[in-house]
Protein backbone atom coordinates (compact mmCIF):
# COMPACT_ATOMS: atom_id res chain seq x y z
CA UNK A 1 0.00 0.00 0.00
CA UNK A 2 1.59 3.26 -1.08
CA UNK A 3 0.45 6.84 -0.88
CA UNK A 4 1.12 9.74 -3.17
CA UNK A 5 2.81 12.69 -1.47
CA UNK A 6 3.09 16.05 -3.20
CA UNK A 7 5.13 18.65 -1.43
CA UNK A 8 7.42 21.57 -2.06
CA UNK A 9 10.98 21.23 -0.84
CA UNK A 10 13.12 24.34 -0.91
CA UNK A 11 10.80 25.87 -3.48
CA UNK A 12 10.78 22.87 -5.81
CA UNK A 13 7.69 20.70 -6.32
CA UNK A 14 8.29 17.02 -5.52
CA UNK A 15 6.04 14.00 -5.87
CA UNK A 16 6.57 10.49 -4.53
CA UNK A 17 4.71 7.25 -3.88
CA UNK A 18 5.63 6.23 -0.37
CA UNK A 19 4.83 3.75 2.35
CA UNK A 20 2.48 5.29 4.90
CA UNK A 21 5.06 4.71 7.65
CA UNK A 22 7.86 6.59 5.88
CA UNK A 23 9.20 9.43 8.01
CA UNK A 24 9.70 12.88 6.55
CA UNK A 25 13.40 12.81 7.47
CA UNK A 26 13.85 9.64 5.41
CA UNK A 27 11.86 11.08 2.53
CA UNK A 28 14.12 14.12 2.48
CA UNK A 29 17.32 12.11 2.72
CA UNK A 30 16.61 9.05 0.58
CA UNK A 31 13.96 10.22 -1.90
CA UNK A 32 14.70 13.92 -2.40
CA UNK A 33 18.41 13.30 -1.88
CA UNK A 34 18.93 16.13 0.58
CA UNK A 35 21.26 14.69 3.21
CA UNK A 36 21.81 17.92 5.10
CA UNK A 37 19.02 16.95 7.48
CA UNK A 38 20.83 14.68 9.93
CA UNK A 39 19.25 12.03 12.14
CA UNK A 40 20.72 11.82 15.63
CA UNK A 41 18.19 9.81 17.61
CA UNK A 42 15.08 7.68 17.39
CA UNK A 43 12.98 9.25 20.12
CA UNK A 44 12.62 12.84 18.87
CA UNK A 45 14.96 14.16 21.54
CA UNK A 46 17.95 15.56 19.69
CA UNK A 47 16.44 17.92 17.12
CA UNK A 48 19.20 17.31 14.54
CA UNK A 49 16.55 16.64 11.89
CA UNK A 50 14.65 19.91 12.41
CA UNK A 51 13.24 21.47 9.23
CA UNK A 52 10.69 24.16 8.57
CA UNK A 53 7.27 22.91 7.54
CA UNK A 54 5.03 25.75 6.41
CA UNK A 55 7.35 28.06 8.32
CA UNK A 56 7.29 26.15 11.59
CA UNK A 57 10.25 24.24 12.97
CA UNK A 58 9.41 20.53 13.18
CA UNK A 59 11.48 17.48 13.96
CA UNK A 60 11.23 15.65 10.66
CA UNK A 61 11.59 12.29 12.43
CA UNK A 62 8.25 12.91 14.15
CA UNK A 63 6.42 13.75 10.94
CA UNK A 64 5.21 11.10 8.53
CA UNK A 65 5.96 11.88 4.94
CA UNK A 66 2.25 11.63 4.18
CA UNK A 67 1.57 14.36 6.75
CA UNK A 68 3.76 16.69 4.70
CA UNK A 69 1.46 16.29 1.69
CA UNK A 70 0.68 19.75 0.36
CA UNK A 71 3.24 21.42 2.63
CA UNK A 72 6.18 23.65 1.96
CA UNK A 73 9.31 22.27 3.52
CA UNK A 74 12.55 24.17 3.93
CA UNK A 75 15.71 22.27 4.78
CA UNK A 76 19.17 23.54 5.62
CA UNK A 77 20.04 23.31 1.91
CA UNK A 78 17.29 25.78 1.08
CA UNK A 79 18.21 28.45 3.58
CA UNK A 80 20.91 30.37 1.75
CA UNK A 81 19.61 32.72 -0.89
CA UNK A 82 21.02 33.99 -4.17
CA UNK A 83 22.74 36.74 -2.22
CA UNK A 84 24.60 34.32 0.01
CA UNK A 85 24.27 32.75 3.42
CA UNK A 86 21.21 33.27 5.60
CA UNK A 87 22.07 35.63 8.49
CA UNK A 88 21.76 32.76 10.99
CA UNK A 89 24.17 30.62 8.96
CA UNK A 90 26.58 33.54 8.74
CA UNK A 91 26.32 34.12 12.47
CA UNK A 92 27.06 30.48 13.29
CA UNK A 93 30.20 30.80 11.15
CA UNK A 94 31.24 34.14 12.65
CA UNK A 95 30.73 33.01 16.25
CA UNK A 96 32.11 29.45 16.07
CA UNK A 97 28.62 28.11 16.68
CA UNK A 98 29.52 24.61 15.54
CA UNK A 99 32.20 22.00 15.96
CA UNK A 100 31.43 18.60 14.41
CA UNK A 101 28.53 20.11 12.49
CA UNK A 102 26.13 17.23 12.97
CA UNK A 103 23.52 19.03 15.09
CA UNK A 104 24.11 22.26 13.18
CA UNK A 105 21.40 22.00 10.50
CA UNK A 106 18.79 21.36 13.19
CA UNK A 107 20.17 24.12 15.39
CA UNK A 108 20.12 26.61 12.55
CA UNK A 109 16.57 25.72 11.48
CA UNK A 110 15.37 25.99 15.09
CA UNK A 111 17.20 29.30 15.46
CA UNK A 112 15.47 30.67 12.37
CA UNK A 113 12.13 29.96 13.99
CA UNK A 114 13.18 31.32 17.39
CA UNK A 115 14.22 34.60 15.79
CA UNK A 116 11.18 34.63 13.56
CA UNK A 117 8.98 34.62 16.65
CA UNK A 118 11.27 36.78 18.76
CA UNK A 119 13.89 38.70 16.80
CA UNK A 120 15.38 40.24 19.92
CA UNK A 121 15.65 36.96 21.83
CA UNK A 122 17.90 37.21 24.88
CA UNK A 123 20.51 34.71 25.97
CA UNK A 124 18.06 33.09 28.40
CA UNK A 125 15.23 33.04 25.85
CA UNK A 126 17.46 31.39 23.29
CA UNK A 127 18.59 28.76 25.82
CA UNK A 128 14.94 28.02 26.56
CA UNK A 129 14.09 27.92 22.87
CA UNK A 130 16.81 25.33 22.25
CA UNK A 131 15.39 22.84 24.74
CA UNK A 132 14.52 20.43 21.93
CA UNK A 133 17.98 20.44 20.37
CA UNK A 134 21.04 18.65 21.67
CA UNK A 135 24.64 19.57 20.92
CA UNK A 136 27.38 17.45 22.44
CA UNK A 137 30.37 19.50 21.23
CA UNK A 138 29.95 23.19 21.96
CA UNK A 139 28.37 23.29 25.40
CA UNK A 140 25.86 25.58 23.64
CA UNK A 141 27.85 28.72 24.53
CA UNK A 142 28.62 29.76 20.98
CA UNK A 143 25.34 28.49 19.59
CA UNK A 144 23.49 30.83 21.93
CA UNK A 145 25.94 33.60 21.07
CA UNK A 146 25.41 33.00 17.34
CA UNK A 147 21.62 33.16 17.61
CA UNK A 148 21.54 36.22 19.85
CA UNK A 149 23.98 37.98 17.51
CA UNK A 150 21.95 37.07 14.42
CA UNK A 151 18.87 38.46 16.10
CA UNK A 152 20.60 41.64 17.14
CA UNK A 153 21.92 42.15 13.63
CA UNK A 154 18.56 41.52 12.02
CA UNK A 155 16.52 43.78 14.25
Amino acid sequence: MRHRVCLTVNGKAEEFDVEPRLLLCHLLRAYVGLTGTNIGCDTSQCGSCTVLMDGKAVKSCTVLAVQADGCEVTTIEGLAGADGLHPVQQSFWDNHGLQCGFCTPGMIMTAVEILDRNPGATDAEVRHGLEGNICRCTGYENIVKSIVAAGARGS
Binding site: I76, E77, W93, H96, L98, G101, P105
Partner: peptide, 21 residues
Amino acid sequence: VKRVEDPRFIQGKGRYVANIQ
Protein backbone atom coordinates in the same frame (compact mmCIF):
# COMPACT_ATOMS: atom_id res chain seq x y z
CA VAL B 1 40.96 32.49 12.27
CA LYS B 2 37.39 31.57 11.31
CA ARG B 3 37.00 27.89 10.56
CA VAL B 4 37.48 26.94 6.93
CA GLU B 5 35.41 23.79 7.37
CA ASP B 6 32.27 25.64 8.45
CA PRO B 7 30.71 26.63 5.10
CA ARG B 8 29.92 23.03 4.23
CA PHE B 9 28.40 22.27 7.63
CA ILE B 10 26.21 25.36 7.87
CA GLN B 11 24.83 24.64 4.40
CA GLY B 12 24.01 20.99 5.00
CA LYS B 13 26.90 19.69 2.92
CA GLY B 14 28.62 17.67 5.63
CA ARG B 15 30.00 14.43 4.24
CA TYR B 16 28.94 12.00 6.94
CA VAL B 17 29.07 8.23 6.43
CA ALA B 18 25.26 7.98 6.63
CA ASN B 19 25.09 10.19 3.52
CA ILE B 20 27.01 7.73 1.36
CA GLN B 21 24.69 6.09 -1.11
